[in-house]
Design a protein around this nucleic acid. Structure first.
Lengths: 341, 341
DNA sequence: CATTTTCTGATTTACGTACCTCAAAAACTC
DNA sequence: GAGTTTTTGAGGTACGTAAATCAGAAAATG
């Protein structure tokens, strides 16, 4: 049977109160006694029953998620996952609030962070936009003892505790690898459409993509990146324009959101003239485009995983536990039309 | 504040005992009273505190995992995950025992299942081998009220409650798609190496693979499948032999385990004569081969996910809960050298 | 209407831990 | 050795639920 605190007390020849003092790091235990207890703990292989402990503590965590008010499917998906987590978290003594901010707007984000800090939540997760104001706001949050996690897009060099998202460099490299190999040795141009170079995830994807393109597929010429602010209408426009202007585009990498527009533009083209397309994020639109053959491969980051990881890390930080890197690594999923889940 | 059973009792104007009877579906509550309580529950939005409930119940689940005594990395990985789960499960009031059986041996598996049934565990998970004896053994398990889940390889048509594994048909299709596109329009032969056509997962992969090959890549001729019983030495031999005999092999699909042997054989070949290789399962060997360029793409089923899913489902079955299909679907992961996690 | 059966209430114990108080013992200090 | 401080013990309450007992009320049965 699983040992309990009572067993420890008996085995160490001390009282329950002393075991409790050792376990919860309370003062008033002599060094030798503490060691006796610790020995008993490892001897019996005692592990604290977390469920019972939480029940006894009655602790509740309060977290705030700061999300860009984008209407693209990915961000909607993330918000849904936050909602789902919020629902479950009611069960797990966790309170989660969601705050929306204008997208791609560093000052607005910094302001939001500062105003949230006034409520003194236990932790904050946010989608980073680069900017000195944001760095400063994060520093203030940490100053106030609030756990901080970046979500989807990171803010390296800041004092955030953790980044819950994929390795976007690797994602870009993977995209290049797929696009290059799918292009099958033909020559031609490659178009790239992004949301904004202001967000780190997009920039890193581009860097990784260009690196592999240069290394492994020198016969494919990559056009200058187009930015469409993850706006479907704008994306449709710029992609259409590019495809008209350069008939020898044989590949397209859509590394941001707003794929509704990209797919729309692709549909206008004669099937045999369509480029090989690699895009990001599995949504209703992209999933359909994948089965239809408009998109050839899809890189995905699982929103649910990211949100749950962020919450786990925030809880861990609040409780002073270390992050288990292996557990919190978010994988880059690749979908072809045959393995859509 | 989160409502408790006490709040429900007060709000419904009944006693705690009655609330308990309703919640735990115990007899002795009039229909109208039951409804009053249920209304109070939904009115207050009560959710049972699972932690407290488990604490109070003190219930322990006993599960048995029946695994083939294979020494390939994938099965070792599965066993490691079972061990890890076993460790954690001590915390979660779950007892897991692992039983090994000879691989690819239906009568032995059936015998093992029967002998395990004598202990009357709450649930059994096993890697299926096809055979009438196994079907019959599963029927007996269900007869005895034991929850049954197949792991990695399924046994459709049997009375198992659930299959914790990937859609192997889709995996084969995905492999064909990747292999065909990576081959880049060249003509040539494709070799396929499997473990055994006796296990359903291998057979289904092959079917999916052949289907897409026929549909989409008619210029690639698929050689008859080679079976190596997931034995590295044997695999090395047959792959070497095939590559020697057919110099125009431009693609290889390794759909079983024993990739150590396959990689060994590939390494013997001049780099520029190497075929495009798609294999299954991310292990130490295959991971290295992927970075080295010996393998071009890897399909993977996450052993940890599968084991945890199996345990979740078993617990659910024991508690009479329905399986949440979306949550229990195991994805097919694709790894290229750039997105190894 | 009496009797049996079916409900319901009140109360208690337990699960494993946290946290509190009060008293007693042990270890120091001068 | 008296006084002070530190360490330890004993005991209790609480968390939210499960499960049991027993008595009493209500309903159904004859």
């Amino acid at each position: 049977m699983k040992p309990t605190v009572h067993d420890i007390a008996r085995s160490a020849g001390v009282s329950l109160a002393t075991v409790d003092r050792v376990l919860n790091d309370r003062p008033g235990v002599r060094h030798v006694t503490r060691e006796r207890v610790e020995q008993a703990i490892s001897r019996l292989g005692y592990v604290r029953d977390v469920a019972a402990a939480n029940l006894a503590k009655g602790r509740t965590y309060s977290f705030v998620f700061v999300m860009p008010a984008n209407d693209n499917s990915f961000m909607i998906g993330i918000r849904e996952e936050v909602d789902a987590a919020t629902y479950r978290s009611g069960i797990e003594r966790t309170q989660i609030r969601v705050v929306e901010v204008p997208p791609f707007d560093a000052p607005a984000l910094a302001d939001a962070l500062d105003s949230i800090a006034l409520d003194k939540p236990d932790g904050i997760a946010f989608v980073a936009v680069e900017g000195a104001q944001v760095h400063a706001a994060v520093a203030r949050l940490k100053e106030a003892g609030i756990a901080v996690v970046t979500l989807v897009s990171d803010l390296p060099g800041s004092e955030r505790d953790h980044f819950a998202g994929i390795d976007n460099h690797a994602a870009g490299r993977t995209a290049a690898n797929l696009l290059g190999r799918f292009a099958g040795g033909r020559d031609g141009r490659i178009a790239v459409i992004a949301g904004s170079m202001l967000v780190r995830d997009h920039r890193e994807r581009l860097e990784g993509f260009l690196a592999v393109m240069g290394e492994s597929f020198p016969r494919l010429a990559v056009l200058p990146v187009m930015e469409a602010r993850d706006d479907p209408a704008l994306a449709a426009e710029v992609v259409s324009a590019a495809l008209r202007r350069y008939p020898d585009i044989i590949g397209l990498y859509s590394l941001g959101a707003g794929n509704r527009g990209v797919v729309h533009a692709l549909r206008e083209i004669a099937p045999d003239a369509r480029p090989v397309v690699v895009a990001h994020e599995l949504t209703g639109t992209t999933r359909a485009a994948l089965s239809e053959g408009l998109i050839d491969a899809l890189l995905n980051q699982d929103a649910g995983h990211e949100v749950r990881s962020a919450i786990r890390v925030l809880k861990g930080k609040v409780d002073g536990l270390p992050v288990i890197a292996a557990q919190e690594r978010i994988r880059i999923d690749i979908f072809l039309k045959d393995n859509m889940s």
